[in-house]
Amino acid sequence: MTIIVISAVWCHACLSMRKTINAIKTKHPEWTWIEYDLDLDEDQVAPFKIGKIIPVFIVQKNNTEVKRIVGEHSLSALESELLNA
């Protein structure tokens, strides 16, 4: 499973989720993470057509999007969403 994270360095919601992301990365080393910056990685972000709310977590299996999680979530909520993807 691959999780694509789209965030911005100036976004407090993204900043406050940094610890959550790091904790899940440690707990689930079997998942692959790709992180894009909304401003600096415009070309990579554009195809995903995200809305105004960040961060965005795009879950892919076999290169196909199976789930999209938007906004700030607690550690347990995000982990649960990912486990159920």
Binding site: A8, V9, W10, C11, H12, C14, L15, S16, R18, K19
Partner: peptide, 18 residues
């Protein structure tokens, strides 16, 4: 700009609390 600087540090491995 302050969140941006803190976010930059977070990407360098710093813990940031609110």
């Amino acid at each position: 700009s302050l969140i941006g600087a803190a976010g930059y540090l977070a990407h360098q491995g710093y813990d940031v609390d609110t």
